[in-house]
């Protein structure tokens, strides 16, 4: 099971950091941020059994899922993390 902070590599060889995990309607969603370029973000449904992520392309679904990432963020991560230069 993926969790906050894990780094995954997709079949296109792009590396993403799991920056958010949430559940919505019995599905698991990931908020992925490219480890090299933070402006490259993906909201994707996570199929754990198949080991796949499927990018959310439905704007309505995106609207519903996005706030849940924020709700699920553990403040412990924020308190323990200092940004680096």
């Amino acid at each position: 099971m993926l969790e906050f902070g894990d780094v995954i590599t997709l079949e296109n060889n792009m590396e993403y950091v799991v920056s958010g995990v949430c559940d919505f309607l019995d599905n698991k969603y990931l908020y992925l941020v490219n480890s090299k370029e933070v402006s490259d973000c993906i909201v994707a449904m996570y199929d754990e059994e198949a080991g796949e992520v499927n990018v959310v392309e439905d704007p309505d679904l995106f609207d519903k899922v996005m706030p849940k990432f924020i709700d699920s963020l553990n403040e412990d991560y924020l308190e323990s993390g200092e940004e680096d230069e």
């Binding site: 906050f4 902070g5 780094v7 950091v17 920056s19 958010g20 908020y31 992925l32 941020v33 480890s35 933070v38 973000c41 990432f69 924020i70 963020l73 991560y77 924020l78 323990s80 993390g81 200092e82 940004e83 680096d84």
Partner: peptide, 10 residues
């Protein structure tokens, strides 16, 4: 570093 990236992404 990861937290930085993650929060930036957030």
């Amino acid at each position: 570093k990861i937290v930085s990236i993650a929060t930036s992404g957030l």
